[in-house]
Nucleic acid binder design. Sequence first.
DNA 1: ATGAAAGCGCTAACAA
DNA 2: TTGTTAGCGCTTTCAT
Lengths: 344, 344
Amino acid sequence: MNKRITIKQIALALQVSISTVSKALNDSYEISDETKKRIQEYAKLHKYKPNTLALSLQNKKTKTIGIIIPNILNYYFARVLRGIEKVATEKGYNIITCITNESYKKEVDTMEMLSNGTIDGFIACISEETLKLGNFDHFHDILEEGTPIVLYDRVPQEINCDKVVTDLVKSAYKATRFLMKSSCENIAFISASEALNIGKFGLEGYLKALEKYNVNPVKNLIIRQDSEKGLKEKINKMFDKYPVDGIFTVDEVSGAITTQVLNKRFVRIPEDISIVGLTNGILSRYSSPPLTSVNRFAHTTGEIAATRLIDKIEGKIEFDDVKIEVVKSKLVERESTKKLFIKF
Amino acid sequence: MNKRITIKQIALALQVSISTVSKALNDSYEISDETKKRIQEYAKLHKYKPNTLALSLQNKKTKTIGIIIPNILNYYFARVLRGIEKVATEKGYNIITCITNESYKKEVDTMEMLSNGTIDGFIACISEETLKLGNFDHFHDILEEGTPIVLYDRVPQEINCDKVVTDLVKSAYKATRFLMKSSCENIAFISASEALNIGKFGLEGYLKALEKYNVNPVKNLIIRQDSEKGLKEKINKMFDKYPVDGIFTVDEVSGAITTQVLNKRFVRIPEDISIVGLTNGILSRYSSPPLTSVNRFAHTTGEIAATRLIDKIEGKIEFDDVKIEVVKSKLVERESTKKLFIKF
DNA sequence: ATGAAAGCGCTAACAA
DNA sequence: TTGTTAGCGCTTTCAT
């Protein structure tokens, strides 16, 4: 079945030694042009391709990096992946992508499995469950073995390796501030991602902004849960009771659901209520109306992570030279907020 | 730096031979319990993990499958990936995911690169550019080498391998019929994915449905382009001129943009105009209102593809036993269409 | 019960 | 210019 040809077979067919073939195929100066030509032509004819496995075994380098993604349906992660992929390809690296589905076990298993010669390094985002458990031994083990890791998005302090993050608190702060600058007075906070960074830091930034502008947080204007279940009802109830005129949503789904509720209640966006989201993905872009939101430059995050990892793999950076890179975010104004004439 | 321990080192440390260590670690009956214990304990202590590369080289099996995805930001593909991933994990296979960004060159390069021992088989969706060029030599080559391929979603007849598809024509037919059954009389067709299967077969199904119900297609009610550029304007113009009361959109973005336009014009959905989409992703689910659309069971598609491929890799199916699996689709009723009381 | 040796496909130091 | 040999980490057959 497997018809792939090896240098051994070429050597046999052409009555030369294996090493001659190897050298000829690598265009070594040691081999005569004539022999080279003969060998290369034969190789081409028979579609010879070097066995990557054998090469990797030899070089102790696989030119592959392992990517750990908690959830590929998350648009942010998909975009990070794209960024990684771009840089990896440019630098001649393959990527092997693994999805943990936010599971601790899956994460441990895959990382164990890959760290046995299959990959030269990891770019990982820690799963929700692992984060909750707080058990990072697998990361420590792998680092100890000398395999470099770059963490992105979710980055516990306990793990001593390179990290790429967005300053979510600041981003949330900016988003909330924007609402206040467009003269919203009762700004609600909605999150369906309570367990994640985005939920935690989003709230932090939101509160920080309120404090800065001397607004007292109102408990009933803050909706926090870790799934979208029952969110619609909660939002409706909040609107029934309170004169909300600004909403800060942490994740895209919250933003979308809020918009659905508002549209159904015939509330005008942004005339009656403004919305700003902390996540800028397709839902925000294609919502009716399109939602103003904070763009977290996922693509850049991926690029930085990949560049850093490959530099480390190739020894351009010392293994112990560990760095945290903070990717800037940017508020993208769309139609869910009033135009501001005073820029700040 | 690289502190991974090998059997050789264990052998040296314990003053036994390499093969003894190998056998002991594989729990061979040949080795005395005592020696086994000694070796296994030492291995555990030093966190010995077998080198996957060496194993693969030996076994000529890598237990890895290569996944080719044209565009990971596409929700459908991301879901297919999940399905593949699930089955692969269950069966102890790793996946190495490559994104072609719809580029022919990228596709050829990655597939060449991986088909040299890195993977045992491919699950691939052909890139848009490759489809346009009509050059499938790389697929033929790989198949000839004895590497199994399962194609999904985009499946040219020229390639003789396993395939998993959705019957898009039928799906589009069903979607259009649904609009007619809810008494729409002027049904528009909107596509921003002209170059893709979905655009082509979507139109075919749409026209088929019209024909079946003796409705003459109106050229001006059909909008076809291969990007979303200027789509909004075109849709607006169409609404200005024609009394559209039903819309069939092929891709999610078209659906979302149509909804945006409609909302902006204060057209009520579904009271004034109904919308049905051929793609069921997050945009449809979280749109205002949520869009009725055809669910293509991406997850199932991935599962089937992976199962088929692994069966083939493991020799449970003959290499030449080639099959096309058609995954059924299902119309998901949401709020962009009127409720039908007569089921059909 | 243990070990020596060959081999998976390839490279590279060394020899001829 | 070409070939021999050892070795990457591991398994497996065949001695011992």
